[in-house]
Structures are given as C-alpha cells and as structure tokens.
C-alpha cells in the first residue's frame, strides 16, 4: 500500500497543466460567487468589481422572503432526510441480509429517481398530485425530496454493511443478546458514521434541489426556488449574490463532514486487503 504513493514516472508538463486547468475550471466559478457577494455595484455584473462592501449581508439577512424561503428549505431538508434515513436503511439491510427474488429490481427501483432526468420525476409527481387532488403543501415537497434522497442513504449504508461481517450479528446473538440489544450495541454502532454521512449528503441534496421542487411546491418558495426566480428575472442582484454564498456554505459543511466520516473506513478497509 505504501508504495502506491510514488509509482511510475513523474507526470509530464502537459498532463499537469491539463489536470490543474480542469481543477481550476471546477473551482474558480465558486470563488467568483464569493467575490461578487462583496461587490459594491448593485446594478450589473461589472468586472473587476468597483469596490468592496459587506452591507449586502445585512440587507439579505433582513429580507423576510429570503428568511421564509430559507426556513422552508431547512425544514423540508430535515424532514426528507429523516424519512430517507429510515427507508434507505431498511432497504439496505434487506438487500444486505438476504438474497431474494427481485433483489436487483429493488436496487434499480431505488436508484431510478436520480437516474431518470429530474424533470420526469418532477412531472410524474406533479401529475399524480393533480390526479389525487392532494393540495400542494410542505408534505408534497417532503414526498418529492425523500424519494430521491433514499438512494443516497441506501448507497452509503449498504457500502458499510458489505464491509461489516454478518458473523458479528451471529456472535452477538450466540452470546445471549436479544435482537434489540444486537441492534442497539452491534449493528447501529457499526453503521453510525455511514448513517451520518448518508444523512448529510441527503440533506445537502435536498437543500438545493430545484427541479423536482418546482413541480411539487405549488406557490411555496424554497431557497432554490427563490434563487431560480431571481435568475430568470433578476431584481435583487446583491441579495442573490449573498444568498448564493450562503447556500455554498450550508452545502459545503455537510459534504466535507460526510467525506471525513466515510474516509476513515476507506482507509481501514484498504489496509485489510
């Protein structure tokens, strides 16, 4: 494993440039968002920005529409994540524990909501909501979000289950623990960080989802919907810039946390090979 750190010849200058250029291409636009949030120019996207100011952060924070949208986004993301955690964990436990008829079909079914273009999921849910005459509400949003969040939890937890020996559970039962105790002291501690990582990624996914949301929101405005309306008909450019930075911050934290939560286990499983 250690020899992996240095292997083969050194990279050529062309490869280095291409790799560096690609990584810069991925990240410079995010830095530019941060830069513009401090721009003193409110009317246009002039570059270089004429001056620095932090006043837009205060302005954005005072905006009731932004605060309402943020509150709705956080509540939807939290609820959808909770639902996805339960359903995703149950499904991954079932697929891990046993082989049964239609097992592959179930994996496909779980992946389908993100494998199909979002617009199909969105329009399908929209038409189902119309047919069943359910009024648009907080819960229609949660239903849409939970549906595509299940797969994130499922993938994370199933990956952990596959690295967990089934013998652990048998040993626990043999040593006299009952089912609940095995769940509490053996299974849950084993999958805890995977659950946390999956939950965080599901939260980040739900928090900035816009495509399915536009179809299930009705008149409600989540933060991404607020942003989308600003992108299509710009009215408050400085506030939009600040909200954009805020969204980056809110999604980066769980992503980085999830990365570190699952990275340790990668190292562990790697060293055992």
């Amino acid at each position: 494993m250690r020899s992996d750190a240095r292997r083969g010849p050194r990279a050529g200058i062309a490869l280095k440039t291409a790799a560096l250029g690609g990584m810069l291409f991925l990240h410079i636009p995010l830095l530019i968002i941060v830069l513009y949030a401090f721009s003193s120019e409110a009317r246009s996207f002039t570059f270089p920005i004429p001056g620095f100011t932090t006043k837009w952060f205060a302005v954005a924070f005072e905006r009731q529409d932004v605060r309402d949208a943020l509150g709705l986004s956080l509540r939807v993301a939290a609820t959808a994540t909770a639902v996805a955690l339960v359903l995703g964990t149950l499904a991954s436990a079932a697929v891990w524990k046993s082989r049964f008829f239609g097992r592959d079909a179930i994996s496909l079914l779980i992946v389908l909501p993100i494998a199909l273009p979002g617009i199909i999921t969105g329009i399908a849910l929209r038409s189902a909501i119309a047919i069943t005459e359910i009024p648009f509400s907080f819960w229609t949003l949660v239903i849409g979000h939970a549906t595509f969040c299940i797969v994130v939890v499922y993938n994370n937890v199933l990956a952990r289950f596959r690295r967990t020996s089934g013998a652990l559970i048998e040993a626990s039962m043999d040593l006299g623990a009952n089912g609940l105790q095995t769940l509490r002291y053996v299974i849950l501690p084993n999958i805890a960080t995977a659950l946390l990582a999956g939950g965080m990624l599901a939260f980040a996914l739900s928090f900035d989802e816009v495509i399915v949301t536009t179809f299930t929101a009705g008149q409600q405005s989540t933060l991404p919907i607020w942003m989308l309306s600003q992108l299509l008909r710009p009215r408050d450019r400085p506030v939009t810039n600040v909200v954009a930075v805020f969204v980056i911050a809110v999604t980066f934290i769980p992503i980085i946390a999830a990365f570190y939560l699952t990275r340790d286990t990668h190292d562990v499983s790697g060293s055992q090979k």
């Binding site: 530019i32 968002i33 513009y36 991404p224 954009a244 992503i255």
Partner: peptide, 20 residues
C-alpha cells in the same frame, strides 16, 4: 474532495456563477 464538493454543492449557484 475537490471533485466531490462541486458535485454535491448547489447546482443553481454554480449556474448563477456563469451568469456573472
């Protein structure tokens, strides 16, 4: 991590940055 961050982070914000 540098690839994962843009993958998971806000789609709309990243589109918006190109508008700028």
């Amino acid at each position: 991590l540098g690839v994962m961050l843009p993958l998971w982070s806000s789609y709309l914000v990243r589109v918006y940055s190109w508008k700028l």
